[in-house]
Amino acid sequence: MEIQAAVAREKGGDFSIETLEIEAPQAGEILVQVVATGVCHTDLAVRDGHLPTPLPVVLGHEGAGIVSRVGAGVTKVAPGDHVVMTFNFCGHCPSCEDNAPSYCYEFFPRNFFATRPDGSTALSNEAGSIHANFFGQSSFATYAICHERNIVKVSDKAPLKLLGPLACGVQTGAGAVMNALKVGAGKSFAVFGTGSVGLSAIMAAKVAHAKTIIAIDTNDQRLDIARELGASHTINPEKTDTRDAIMATLEHGVDFALDTTGIPAVIRTAVESLAPRGTCGILGASGPDAEIVLNETHLMSAGRKLVGIVEGDSCPDSFIPHLIDLYLQGKFPFDKLVTFYPFAQINNAVRDSATGTTIKPVVLMDHGTQP
């Protein structure tokens, strides 16, 4: 079948909208008519060559759509189901068997190598194969092949075009608070960086009834949005010392901190802002060789912790529907982060994401009326 897809052909270059052929789903695979896909900074990092995903490739890993066809053996979903496509995992390693798929032992090859495990790809044109299967989906396209493991059936009561960001960015921020850090009622929480991940964390901390929620960012407009979404305090590090401001609010520091920037110096500040027995979670790194320097005595002597978090410690089959339920109840308004773009304007969406003009761009596929 012919589809339209945004192909990354050159390091740092624009995506080109091309006509490609997509294969029928193999055993365990699902063909999804993509309704909308979120644009994530991971897509941009891959396009820019910061990760070893081969080019040319169709990226996109926050896809939402409608099941079109299923391959042999698929029982989880059926044609017509509304679905979100999330990260891929093997299903049989020790982490997967412990219901911790975001720490799958094969997470990197399953999500970044852009082929099936046998090296094949579902996309091609007259010149040959195009790398696909990025995060088990490659959803910068009108149709995508995903897998029974990484597809999540969702309620048709929620607007499908809105749900893609739950697959990665929103799930990561909210899950870090709810699943990994387990921020509880009455506790204090600080998030460093208020992009879509950080703002999702703030909404989750509000749902968790955290007493003090502090947002730290150099963008005052983002800090205004953070207050609207639940932050009780905001700090601009360009105007005041972050640690001093936190200690002025909370004498002994915060119970929980979350870094979304991946910048080592910011992570150090986050750890230094912790109260005794406090925990700091980190969601990314500024590069493969980035190192974090901490004061050993400060970390050890009061039982402070630093923990890495991937995809919000989420089990997507249960967590994504939970976030949708919270949204439908008016408790998790992640729609306030989203700006929609036609698929043909994907490069504008990417540029607006890179510059911070848009918090969470979502590209809409042209299939007529969108659910």
Rank of each mutant, 00 (worst) to 15 (best):
V67H: 00
V67Y: 06
S68A: 13
S68C: 11
R69A: 10
R69D: 07
R69G: 00
V70H: 00
V70S: 01
V70D: 03
G71Q: 03
G71F: 08
A72F: 12
A72R: 10
V74E: 00
T75Q: 15
T75K: 15
V77Y: 07
V77S: 05
V77I: 13
V77H: 07
V77P: 01
V77K: 05
A78Q: 15
P79E: 12
P79Y: 11
D81R: 04
D81G: 07
H82W: 10
H82K: 07
H82D: 02
H82I: 00
V84Y: 02
V84D: 03
V84K: 06
M85Q: 07
T86Y: 01
T86H: 09
T86K: 04
F87R: 04
F87I: 10
F87S: 07
N88L: 08
N88M: 08
F89T: 03
F89H: 06
F89E: 04
C90T: 03
C90G: 08
G91S: 06
G91I: 02
G91M: 01
H92W: 11
H92M: 10
P94W: 03
P94S: 00
S95V: 11
S95L: 08
S95C: 12
S95Q: 11
C96S: 03
C96L: 07
D98E: 13
D98N: 14
D98K: 13
N99S: 14
N99Q: 15
A100D: 13
A100V: 15
A100W: 05
A100I: 15
A100H: 12
P101K: 09
P101N: 09
P101Y: 01
S102P: 02
Y103D: 12
Y103G: 12
C104S: 06
C104Y: 03
E106A: 14
F107C: 03
F108Q: 14
F108E: 12
F108Y: 14
F108S: 13
P109M: 11
P109Q: 08
P109T: 14
P109V: 12
P109S: 02
R110C: 11
R110N: 14
N111S: 07
N111D: 04
F112C: 04
F112T: 01
T115K: 06
R116E: 15
R116I: 11
R116S: 13
R116D: 15
P117Y: 11
P117C: 13
P117M: 11
D118C: 10
D118R: 01
D118G: 06
G119V: 12
G119T: 13
T121H: 04
T121D: 00
T121Y: 00
A122W: 11
A122K: 11
L123E: 01
